[in-house]
């Protein structure tokens, strides 16, 4: 074990892992975090705390993570290159590790143009692959990016994201290989609705033996409404929502039924990805819909979650 991460432990012990996601509030309200953390507790092995997702100002990921930790959970701090240069990134890495946080997800970040401060200056000093390598070297070589040594290294289980549905598709497996080479211990994928394409990508992953070097968690999310499905299909870059998904939801007769079908679809996808060789777990994103997490995980036969003695 490289770290004290619960997620690492679950994965190393061969369990099919479940991670969740929690979006911090766009305010200083600590109550929201605690409430959402309680909804996820016992249903996931670890959960991501987004870092200014869609470039909207929200409570700092690390601060919300400390609260999640106080609720007895294993947070994954997301960290983007959009708002911090290599100096700030390394300072935050030291800080979160010192606060007892065990996991970090390295991202480039959503462009500031999409958020509520489009006039902001984007940083992008590093990209996600350079960030991965920097954090890996801090942990394993006890070195800062400049080469200087440190006395106590950050002990973080290091994650990254990958999108099997973006273009060029032929580069998506090599890009994963770069992230593994750079230092990723685990990968969370973009939300999967196109299972055939995901299976094809996983085949490429297995052909290169990458599933043996990195733990791959398949991204899944329930769809709440037809509007949301259409929005994802047409507006969100890098999302692949096949027509069959829209058609399935269209068959429902009321709003409640659409949500219900959205949940059923999510459970079906979980069951299908679980059968794909090399998938080590799922990453369930039910942002602003956290209350359905226990139901989905239960219906997918993934409860109870493993508990380890200290």
């Amino acid at each position: 074990m490289k770290t004290k991460s619960n997620l690492e432990r679950v994965l190393e012990s061969g369990h099919f892992a479940v991670t969740g996601e929690l979006g911090p509030p766009a305010s200083a309200d600590a109550g929201v975090i605690r409430k959402k953390a309680k909804l996820l507790k016992g249903n996931v092995d670890a959960f991501n705390i987004t870092d200014g997702q869609t470039a909207v100002v929200r409570m700092a990921s690390w601060a919300a993570a400390v609260m999640g930790k106080e609720e007895g959970m294993d947070p994954i701090v997301q960290m983007t290159c959009r708002d911090r240069n290599r100096i700030a990134l390394q300072m935050d890495v030291l800080g979160i590790s010192a606060l007892g946080i065990n996991n970090m997800l390295c991202l480039t970040g959503d462009h500031q143009k999409f958020g509520n401060h489009p006039a902001a200056r984007g940083v992008y000093d590093l990209d996600s692959i350079q960030l991965l390598r920097m954090v890996r070297d801090m942990r394993d070589e006890k070195r800062f990016q400049c080469g200087d040594e440190m006395a106590v290294e950050p002990r973080l289980f290091i994650g990254a994201a990958e999108n099997p549905f973006a273009d060029p598709f032929e580069f998506r497996v090599p890009r994963l290989a770069k992230k593994v080479e750079a230092g990723a211990d685990f990968i969370q994928t973009q939300i999967i609705y196109n299972l055939d394409k995901f299976a094809e990508w996983m085949k490429g992953v297995r052909d290169r033996g990458l599933h043996e070097r990195v733990k791959i968690l398949a991204g899944v999310a329930p769809i709440k409404s037809l509007g949301a499905a259409r929005y994802m299909k047409t507006r969100v870059p890098g999302m692949d929502v096949p027509d069959s998904v829209i058609e399935r939801l269209q068959k429902a007769t009321s709003k409640e039924q659409v949500s219900r079908e959205g949940i059923n679809l999510c459970v079906d996808i979980i069951k299908r990805v679980r059968e794909i060789e090399g998938v080590a777990g799922i990453h369930l994103m039910a942002i602003e819909w956290e209350e359905v997490v226990p139901e989905i995980i239960g219906a997918a036969d993934l409860l109870p979650r493993p508990v380890f003695a200290e």
Binding site: D127, I129, A161, D167, F171, R175, K178, Q190, P237, G238
Partner: peptide, 10 residues
Amino acid sequence: LLNGPCGGSQ
């Protein structure tokens, strides 16, 4: 980016 396309290239 210096390491290839991001996840939003489509």
